[in-house]
């Protein structure tokens, strides 16, 4: 049994380890290790397209995760106050946001936005004072919106689970001691749910940063890091892609580790 378990862990990590190893290859080859070098990292970071894609990905991931954390937390707080019927509707929509495949989310958002833009752009042009009306189009906004949909549902689920485990008694104790609802929220509820909000934010960031398929549809002319990596892979395998892949791995690894540490803190209350 132990041998089997070890084999599974090897299976999970060996391919990643090889990608990382060959990112430090001195030669051009992706199969023969000819010496240690960090030249491919230098090459990758000199690549202006790559750096632009990385910037786009960071902006999109930060924005969508921040919006998801705020709106998701608000929804989680509001949902326990809703009537059961309304709560079930919201629960269903949130579950749908998580379950519907990314490829469908991408397509549906693309189709809907293109229609809305083709309706709004002429309207804008006709009512715009002066010469240059703004052209609405795909880009940052559409990716943030589509990523935020899944992320918000994710944050809501995580924070809701945390609130459910809180117990009403501390909130009641607080109001018995004449704290206003706002004070109770600030001093009692918020500190308790903050780790789960942060964990939700980090998972949302990781999701957005790693997502390829949704962005592929709604990015318009913008390039995110996964879109760039995907395009490079189709051109052929080089140690430069390994270097980029390693950077992506390290970034998401840090996020997920911090998120897991934050989420673990929920145990002591019981």
């Amino acid at each position: 049994m132990r041998a089997f378990i070890s084999a599974v862990y090897l299976f999970l990590y060996a391919p990643i380890a090889l990608v990382v190893l060959f990112s430090f290859n001195a030669g051009r080859s992706a199969s023969e290790f000819t010496g240690f070098s960090t030249m491919w990292y230098g090459k990758a970071l000199d690549n202006t397209f790559l750096v632009a894609a990385l910037q786009n990905s960071l902006i999109i991931a930060l924005t969508s995760a921040a919006l998801a954390a705020i709106f998701g937390t608000m929804a989680a707080l509001g949902m326990e106050r809703l009537r059961p019927g309304a709560r079930a509707v919201l629960d269903g929509l949130l579950a749908a946001a998580i379950v519907v495949p990314g490829v469908v989310i991408g397509i549906a958002t693309l189709v809907a936005l293109v229609e809305v833009f083709s309706f709004l752009n002429p309207v804008l042009a006709s009512i715009w004072p002066g010469g240059n009306p703004p052209q609405l189009g795909l880009g940052y906004g559409s990716i943030v919106a589509a990523h935020g949909l899944f992320s918000m549902a994710l944050v809501t689920m995580i924070v809701k689970a945390r609130i459910a485990s809180l117990g009403r008694d501390i909130v009641e104790a607080s109001s018995d001691l004449y704290a206003t609802p706002l004070t109770t929220f600030r001093l009692v509820v918020l500190p308790q749910i903050l780790p789960s909000i942060l964990a939700g934010f980090l998972l949302a960031f990781t999701f957005s940063f790693d997502d390829f398929i949704i962005a592929f549809f709604v990015a318009g002319s913008k390039t995110t890091l996964p879109i760039y990596v995907f395009a490079s892979i189709r051109r052929g395998v080089t140690p430069e892609i390994n270097a980029i892949a390693t950077l992506v791995l390290v970034a998401s690894l840090m996020m997920i580790l911090i998120a897991r540490i934050l989420m673990r803190e929920k145990k002591p209350t019981n």
């Binding site: 090889l18 992706a30 790693d210 992506v248």
Partner: peptide
């Protein structure tokens, strides 16, 4: 591994 890029992990096998 689940939360690290599926693209990169699939690339590893392509490789």
């Amino acid at each position: 591994p689940f939360w690290t890029s599926l693209l990169v992990r699939t690339y590893a096998w392509m490789y």
